[in-house]
Amino acid sequence: MIEVERKFLVVSDAFKADAIRVETMQQGFLSTDPERTVRVRVLDDSGKLTIKGASSADGTSRFEWERELPLTEAQRLLDLCLPGMISKQRYIIPVGAHTFEVDVFSGDNQGLIIAEVELSAADEDFPKPQWLGEEVTGDAKYYNSQLAVKPYSKWLDTSFL
């Protein structure tokens, strides 16, 4: 129940050629408290409820509990979420023994593309494809819960700070 992952910005759309699947998702948050984030996700024709604990100091690991939900229940829970929905397409890309999930955001987070790779340990070696850019692991502004509160489109708007 401990998730270990690293996040990177993506510098080109070359990843799309290697994707084995693309998923469309919408997600909202019942809680964006960094100590206990509660997320509802509608993913194509299914739903998920996820609870995440606080991140480790370096941002690579945290508690994660997730359960499948019927689509209708997930859609109803989205109605209860805090303002700030996240919409994105997720590209699933195998690279060696690892799988990268590349999120292409839309809506208020249009223009942001983030790749995540789940690992068995924070210091695990993994292949880094050419399209990976700067690592943003542990930078809270790139957490989906924070993108719901302060979307990418508002980062340059100083009145939003």
Rank of each mutant, 00 (worst) to 15 (best):
T24L: 08
T24Y: 15
M25H: 14
Q27W: 10
F29G: 04
F29P: 04
L30C: 06
T32K: 00
P34H: 00
P34L: 09
E35Y: 02
E35Q: 14
R41F: 11
S46Q: 14
G47T: 09
T50V: 05
K52P: 00
K52C: 00
S55Q: 12
A57G: 05
A57R: 12
G59Q: 03
S61A: 14
S61Q: 15
S61I: 03
R62M: 02
R62G: 10
F63W: 12
E64V: 13
W65F: 15
E66H: 06
E66A: 13
E66Y: 10
E66I: 04
R67F: 15
L69D: 10
E73T: 13
E73Y: 10
L77V: 01
L77Y: 15
D79L: 15
C81P: 06
L82H: 07
P83D: 07
G84A: 06
G84I: 05
K88H: 08
K88L: 07
Q89R: 15
R90K: 09
R90N: 07
Y91K: 02
I92G: 08
G96N: 02
T99G: 06
F100Q: 05
E101A: 14
E101S: 13
F105V: 00
Q110T: 14
G111K: 11
E116Q: 06
V117E: 01
S120C: 07
S120H: 09
A122C: 02
D123S: 07
D123Y: 02
E124I: 08
P129E: 10
W131C: 00
L132W: 07
L132A: 05
G133Q: 05
G133P: 08
E135Y: 09
T137Y: 10
G138L: 01
K141L: 09
K141V: 10
Y142A: 08
Y142K: 09
L147V: 05
A148H: 10
A148E: 08
